[in-house]
Computed example of a mutant assay.
Amino acid sequence: MLKTHYGFRYKDPDDSLMVIRGIGWESTSNEDYRWDGWTRGDKFVAFQYTLSGEGHLIYDGKHYAVPPGHGFFVRIPDRHCYYYQSDSRTPWEFVFLTAEGSHVFSYWNEIVEKNGPVVALDPSSKPIAMLLEMMRGADDRTLTDKYEISVRLYEWIVSCLRALEGKREIERSVPDAVEKARAFMESRYHLPLTLEDIAAAAGASKYHFCRQYVKYAGMTPVQHLSRIRIAEASRMLRETNASIASIAVAAGFDNGSYFGKVFRKLTGISPQQYRDGSDGSPAKPIFVE
């Protein structure tokens, strides 16, 4: 599944059905990437989930960071904007879904009222797995019936409600140990780091630190380090003509074979497929009868 996005075009639009408007997987390191909820000239809802890097959301005047393992729910039009911050050290890579139909707004309202606009979801959670499965359906053109699309969208929303049930957005500052570890990994990802190295840089014991990191980042330090390395490798694949083997070494991997294995595990495709497909093309249309 290449990194791209799809726009659904319906022959006979029916506002009584909830349907997918767009779905995809993108990356940006452009400081001009910014979407304002009041100026988009249409009516729909959006969910965007960070795979690596970090995005930012302003919602009702409040700032939220959107790090890996987190996503946000917004309505359009509404008082929000989301954007990439130019001083970030890695590209913002994310998957997203947009939807429309009269009933979909009440579900988005329910999620935001109960959990806040930004939510934590494990990368292996059912909502993220279902989102990727719908992307595969768009990619192989098996998701082309409006009634099936509506059912799949409803099932996805229910999976989100179930995953988030009982959870509230807790306002808390990120512990210094987590911030120190993140900065350490982002500046030294190219070195052969161990969990012990990262914990020492954070000034914490390995086991307590690891539990704390998962709580605030949604993944282990080693998993986050892999994502930082893959994000940097993705940038080099897009922006340079360096060989894949040299990119692997520059991103902190021992060899090209292991790099390819980790890259495919996190993205679903090989580094070469990523390089071939990252052409910045517009949304691919899917026409639904």
Rank of each mutant, 00 (worst) to 15 (best):
S106N: 11
K206S: 08
M219G: 00
I76N: 13
P282F: 11
Y84D: 02
P282M: 06
I23G: 07
T4A: 05
D12K: 15
L17G: 03
K62N: 08
V119H: 06
G71W: 06
G55Q: 02
L153Y: 08
E196K: 15
C210M: 11
A248L: 02
I244V: 15
T39I: 05
Q85D: 11
K265H: 04
I111Q: 07
K126E: 14
A46G: 07
E26A: 14
C160N: 14
A231K: 00
Y107C: 07
M130T: 12
K146R: 15
E165K: 15
D15R: 13
A201M: 02
M134K: 10
D122N: 12
R235P: 02
G101N: 03
F8P: 04
Q212C: 13
G7Y: 05
Q85L: 13
W25K: 13
A250E: 14
T240D: 01
K265W: 01
Y33A: 12
S29D: 11
G268N: 06
S88A: 14
S52Q: 01
A242N: 12
E169A: 12
E133C: 08
T194A: 08
A120N: 11
D140M: 13
A250Q: 10
F96P: 01
I228R: 00
A99N: 05
S16K: 15
R238S: 11
V118A: 04
E133V: 04
S243E: 10
W38P: 00
